[in-house]
Amino acid sequence: MTANAWLLVLLQSVLFLLGAPLLVAWVRRVKARLQNRRGAAWSQPYRDLYKLFGKETLVAHTASGVFRAAPYIVFASTLLACTVVPLITVRLPSAAVADVIVLVGFLALGRFFLALAGMDVGTAFGGMGSSREMLISALAEPAMLLAVFTLAMTAHSTNLASVIDHQLASGLILRPSYLFALMGLVLVAVAETGRIPIDNPTTHLELTMIHEAMILEYSGRHLALMEWAAQLKLMLYGVLIVNVFLPWGIGTQLTLPALASGLLFVIGKLLLLGVILAVAETGLAKMRLFRAPAFLNLALLLALLGLLSNVILEAGA
C-alpha cells in the first residue's frame, strides 16, 4: 500500500511536469482568442522546451559555478514543492514530508538561487531583475504566510492534506476568512508567478522586466530548465488555490475511480482558473514597479483581514 502511495507521488510529479506547459498553452490560447488572435498551437510550449534542450548551451566567461548550478536547484526545488501539494488525491504520503511552510521555503530556495544567478554574470540587467524580484518576494511572502495561517488556524494544521481533509469534512461553510485568504493568495500568486500587472511574462522591454532580466544570460538546456520551473510554479499556485479553497472532487481514497475523478475535477478547475487569469491579464495593464508594493500591501491587508475575521467572527469567544 505504501509503495503504491509513493508511486502515486511519482505519478503526480509526472503529471505536474507534463501539465505545466499545457496550462501555459491554455492561458496563452485563451488570451489570444480574447485579443482576436488565433494563437499558437497547443504543443508550442513543449516544442519550445524540446528545442531548447537540443540547443547548444552558452555560458558567459564571467559566470561562476553558481550560474551553472542554479537552473538545477531552481528546477529541483520547484518540482519538490509540486510533489507535496495534493493534486488528485488527499492521501499523499509526501504531504507529510513538508508542510505548507516548508513549501514556501522551497519556493524561497529556488528564488534565492534564481536571484543569485541573475547577479552572477555581472551585467546591469541581471542585478536589476534580482533586486526587483527580491523586493516583490519580500512583500509577497508575509502575505502568503498570513493567508496560509488563516487556513491553519481553522484546520489546526499546516499539513496541506489535513487542511483539505478538514475542508471536505466540514462541508460547505461560508467563511469570510477563507474568502479574504483566497483573494490575498490570488494576488500573491499573480505577483510570484510574474504575471500582469506585476511582471509581464512575454516582455523583453529592458526596463520593465523582472523574471526575464534574471534569466537573460541563460541559453540551451539551462534556459529550458528555468522556463520549465516557471511553468511548474504557475501550475503549483493554481493547484494550491483550487485544491485548498475548493477541494471538492479531489480523491479521498486510493482507488482508481476516485483518482480518475480527482484528475478530471482538477483539470476542470485549472482550465477555469486559466480562463480567469487570461481575462484578467487582457483587461489589466502592467504597473510601474513602485506601484507593486501597493498591490502587495493589498494582498497583505486581505490576508490580515482574513485572519482577523477568523478570530472575530469564526472562532467565537
Binding site: I173, L174, P176, E314, A315
Partner: peptide, 20 residues
Amino acid sequence: MNLVQLSLLEQAVFVLAALI
C-alpha cells in the same frame, strides 16, 4: 467554533459584514 452551527444564510451575512 460557532460558525459551523449557523445556517448558510447567517454565514452569508457574516461574509457580507466582513466585506463591508
